[in-house]
């Protein structure tokens, strides 16, 4: 089951540059929430705050509070937190030194799981959920780098799912892929919301409209508007949202 997230007065800096300026947002469980906005609006920083990846960058700083399922994420060890909050990156990044199988179970295995049977079950289950099993089941020992770009990205999704997170962050997961691979990923996202709370950053508004239950519009480090996707796209409250989605700027 996915968890709810509530974000309170979240501020983030990178160097002297404030990238998030007091975000308040409630994110429903088992929903797909899309984050849209022009480049540099802070949407990537926002999702990277949720699994505390932003803090790993030198010169970064965070203030505010994020509550995951009733508990502050800042009270937790970030390493433990990241097992609950999975992430898929813009560019597929399978581990080059590992096979397909090793990639999928990397998170579980490096955290101490040794039982071979269990690992195999996890690998199959995760690859099935990522809709990649049928394509790779005969070559699990091949290098992860031998797959096509779209397959690599689904491998990365499987790898994130194998850790059994409750929240899945996706930072423009299809922006480096061709249309067919993009379609695969979008179909996958719709299925995965049965079990996960999904946040997806995208600069592609059609994509947000296709897959998201609710959509949040970020501008200059502020959350301008957040509501059901259909409302944001047909009847936005804020003039700036309307300008953005009708293509008048950004």
């Amino acid at each position: 089951m996915g968890h709810t997230l509530s974000v309170r007065q979240l501020e983030a800096w990178y160097g002297s540059n404030q990238t998030l300026k007091g975000i308040n947002m409630e994110i429903a469980s088992n929903h797909v929430t899309a984050i849209i906005g022009p480049s540099g609006c802070g949407k990537s920083t926002f999702v990277r705050c949720i699994n505390r990846m932003h803090e790993t960058l030198p010169g970064s700083k965070v203030k505010g509070e994020i509550i995951l399922d009733g508990e502050s994420i800042y009270e937790q060890d970030p390493v433990v937190l990241r097992k609950m909050v999975g992430m898929v990156f813009q560019k597929p990044n399978p581990f080059p030194s590992m096979s397909i199988y090793e990639n999928v179970v990397a998170g579980v295995r490096l955290n101490g799981m040794r039982n071979k049977k269990t690992l195999q079950d996890i690998a199959e289950k995760s690859l099935r959920m990522a809709a990649l099993w049928d394509e790779v089941k005969d070559r699990l020992n091949y290098s992860g780098m031998s797959l096509s770009g779209g397959q690599q990205q689904r491998l990365c999704i499987a790898r994130a799912l194998a850790v059994e997170p409750s929240v899945l962050l996706m930072d423009e997961p299809a922006s480096a892929l061709d249309p067919i691979a993009t379609m695969h990923i979008e179909g996958l996202v719709r299925q995965l919301k049965e079990d996960y709370t999904i946040l997806i950053v995208t600069h592609n508004m059609q994509q947000a409209a296709r897959i998201a239950d609710s959509t949040a519009f970020f501008l200059n480090g502020e959350l301008v508007e957040h509501g059901p996707t259909s409302e944001i796209f047909t009847n936005p409250n804020d003039k700036r949202t309307e300008d953005y989605i009708t293509g008048r700027f950004g």
């Binding site: 309170r8 007065q9 803090e55 203030k63 060890d77 970030p78």
Partner: peptide, 11 residues
């Protein structure tokens, strides 16, 4: 609420 959070690291 305005404290700056630090990363912790395991032993």
């Amino acid at each position: 609420m305005s404290k700056q959070y630090k990363l912790t690291a395991s032993l």
